[in-house]
Design a protein around this nucleic acid. Structure first.
Lengths: 248, 248
DNA sequence: TAGTGGTCTAGACCACCCC
DNA sequence: GGGTGGTCTAGACCACTAG
C-alpha cells in the first residue's frame, strides 16, 4: 500500500484500498448489511490517513457496493442490489450475470462522411470522415438488438473489422487498443415499431415494439467520440441507476 | 461563507461555494468551455481551503456543469450538454425545458396490501399496507404516460389525494411534506405493446409501442420506498446519463 | 455520553500539459 | 519550467445516532 515505492503502475492508495475492500465484500468475508469497520479503524489498520479511507469508501459508494449513514456507520449493500448495480451500462456484464453468453455479428464496417444530423450531435464539421459499424448483439447466439455506431476518432487512429471481431466489444477496443476512455454518455430513450429490417434481423413478429436508445458518448475531455443508435426487442431489459433528483 | 457563525441552515461551505459558482455559470458570467479560475485562486478569493474548493468542483462535475482536465484546468460544460444533464430524472424539469407545461391526473388513490411480487422488490412482508397511486402524466394537457406507484412509507406517515394534487409532484411531496429523500433508484427499461387501457388513456392507435420503465426507489438508508411502473407513448423520450463503464 | 460519519484546514508532493 | 489538477497527511471540530 505504497505508491511512492515500486511506482510500477502507480495506482493511487485509495484505489488500492477500494480494490481490497471490494474483494473482501465480493468474496463474502463480510456479510450483507453488516457494518464495515469505522473509518478511523480502517485508516489505522491499512496505515493510511482517514481521508484516503474516505476516498475509497466514496468510490465503492458510487459503485453501489456500500453506503454510509451519518452517525451510524458504513454498510454493505445487499447482494441482489449489488448485482443489479454491476449490470448497469454493460451489455456484456449484464448478459453474463444472467447466465448468457454475449456475442455480436458485424453487418456493416465502413468509413463514411458525416451527414448534417450526426455532425451536429458529435459537434464536428459535416463531411468529417467517421467509422460506421452496424452490429447485431447476441445472447446465446440469439439476436437481441441492433447497434449502429458512428465513431469520430482522433486523426491517424483507426481499427480494422478483424480487430473489432476479435475483441468482441467496441468499448474494450476503444480502451485497450486506442487508449480512449469514455467518461460520460447522454442517452435519449423511447419506443418505436420494428421496421422490416428489424423484424428480419431480430427474428421478431411484424408490429413488435422496440426499445430505441440513442447515445452520445464523450471522452474525458468531453469531446463527443461516438453516436450510437440501439434497437432492442421486447425480451431485452435495459438497466439503469438514477442518482440525480431534480424534482420528478 | 461561514457556517459556524449564523448556524442558521448550516449549509456546508463547499455547497455554498458550489451554489455561487453554479449561479455564475448559469447567469452567463462565464462562457462555455472557458476555464474556471484555478483551484488555488478560488480558495484564496473565497477564503476557504483548496480542499473545500475541490469538493465544490466535484459536486458541479457530478451535476454535469463543469469538468476537470489534469494539468489543463477546469472547464464549463457547453450549454446544450448542461441542459440535457439537467433534464435527467425529472419529468417536470424536462418538460419545462422543452417549453411544455407538465401536469398530472390522478386515476387511482388507495391503500392496498402488498402482493408477493411487489413485496419482493420492496423487500417487505406480503400484506404490508401500501399507498397505491395511478396517474396519467400530461404535457400541455396531452396525456404522455401512465405511472403506477406503490409506496411503502414509515409507520404513521401518509398523505391525502388532495395533498398530491396540490403538489403536482410525488417527488416533491415526499421531500417537502414527508421528509423522505430519495437517494438511488434502480430501473429496468424495455418495450411493450400498448394494451387496450393504455390506448384509451394515452389516446394512441391500436398496436402502438410503449416504453416500459420499472423503478425501485430507495431512501438514503437504502430502504426501498417506492416501486413504480411507467408507460410512455412513442412521443416521449426518456433522458439518461451514463457514468459507469463495465465493458459494453 | 460514546462512537460514528461529515466538514474544514494548511501544507506537501506528484502527474500532467503546454510553452 | 511554470502552472494546473490529483493525491496524501495529521489534526481539529461538528452533526447525527444510539444505548
Amino acid at each position: 500500500m505504497d505508491p511512492t515505492q515500486s511506482n510500477e503502475a502507480a495506482v493511487p492508495l485509495y484505489k488500492q484500498l477500494a480494490d481490497t475492500l471490494r474483494q473482501q465484500i465480493e468474496s463474502g468475508e463480510l456479510n450483507d448489511q453488516e457494518p464495515l469497520a469505522p473509518e478511523r479503524e480502517l485508516a489505522l489498520h491499512y496505515k493510511v490517513s482517514r481521508d484516503t479511507v474516505r476516498k475509497a469508501i466514496r468510490l465503492l459508494d458510487e459503485e453501489g457496493m456500500i453506503y454510509s449513514d451519518h452517525g451510524r456507520g458504513t454498510f454493505i449493500t445487499s447482494a441482489p442490489l449489488r448485482d443489479m448495480a454491476k449490470a448497469i451500462g454493460s451489455f456484456t456484464l449484464d448478459t453474463l450475470r444472467r447466465g448468457g453468453v454475449p456475442g455480436q455479428k458485424v453487418l456493416v464496417f465502413e468509413k463514411v462522411t458525416a451527414g448534417m444530423a450526426i455532425a451536429s450531435v458529435l459537434n464536428i464539421k459535416p463531411d468529417t470522415v467517421l467509422h460506421h459499424v452496424k452490429r447485431v448483439r447476441l445472447i446465446d447466439g440469439e439476436p437481441i438488438g441492433i447497434q449502429d455506431s458512428w465513431l469520430c476518432l482522433p486523426k491517424g487512429q483507426g481499427f480494422s473489422r478483424e480487430q473489432l471481431e476479435r475483441k468482441g466489444s467496441l468499448y474494450r477496443l476503444l480502451v485497450e487498443d486506442l487508449q480512449i476512455q469514455p467518461s460520460v454518455a447522454l442517452e435519449s430513450i423511447g419506443s418505436i415499431l420494428a421496421c422490416e429490417q428489424d423484424v428480419a434481423l431480430l427474428n421478431l413478429d411484424k408490429g413488435a415494439p422496440l426499445l430505441l436508445c440513442e447515445r452520445v458518448t464523450m471522452s474525458e475531455r468531453r469531446v463527443p467520440i461516438e453516436y450510437c443508435e440501439m434497437r432492442y426487442g421486447p425480451s431485452y431489459r435495459y438497466k439503469n441507476k438514477v442518482t440525480q433528483w431534480g424534482g420528478n
